[in-house]
Amino acid sequence: MTLINAAGAHARITRRRVWLWFAIVPLTAFGALLAFVSPGAPRTGDTPDLVFTGQIIALFCGAAYAAAFTDFFASTSRRSMDEIEASTPVAPPVRHAALVLGTLGVVLVPSAVVLVGAGIWQTAAGHGAAVPAAIAVLGTIVLPSALIATCLSAFLGALLPHGVARVAAVLLWFGAVFSTPLIPLPTLNGTVLNLVGDTVAAGLYGAQPLYPRYAPTGPLGLDAATPRAAALSLAWQAVLIALLLTAGSSLARARNRS
């Protein structure tokens, strides 16, 4: 109950950061528009379309989260709020989980509106299970990637000066998720480690990956489009989130107290 109530307070704080909406709403709208007009969209009128929309939104909004949350840990310490919170009986992991949940719960609202809206549209067009499918896509594709982008941003913000961290986080995010023959660098796209849900899309929803042509083969490749590979991918993403969060919070604490 403490976690939910504390997350509620952080959700309220995030909701009132007006500039955040100016970053996230246009990017979500851009992602949705791109998914709608893209020649690569499946256009099946059911779940693969929702998955594609979710992935494109995750890809672009991830950049906004990466730029926005470099002060994730520092914003509390600058105001001595970390000391006040540390003087309460709630353990640091619970407080940080509340911060992450509350923040993400709010910033995901535009993505949820787009996906559920698309689900309602599909339902009206005769695809019965579209709204639950949209919620599932939100939970398994958009949410994990948003969490990774936020935690990456928070970690870099604890490690580097904020201006540098902001640029580094956006570059790192795009480097990790954009697979293009124009920039011949290895990315995580097309692998089981994929950060915008290719493995989950293929394994759980039978959708095509975003960049199948550049996907590597072998143990990390997409050749195994199974629910097991999807579960493995989600587990990996959870581990990555926990690692980034723990490392970022430890770095921020160490910096405050040294």
């Binding site: 403490t2 704080i13 600058r78 105001r79 001595s80 709020m81 006040i84 309460t88 009986p89």
Partner: peptide
């Protein structure tokens, strides 16, 4: 101390009460 500027004092004290 600089409490979260986006909250009202009642909301802030409620948050501390939660913790």
């Amino acid at each position: 101390v600089e409490p979260y500027p986006n909250l009202t004092p009642v909301e802030f004290l409620d948050y501390i009460g939660v913790l």
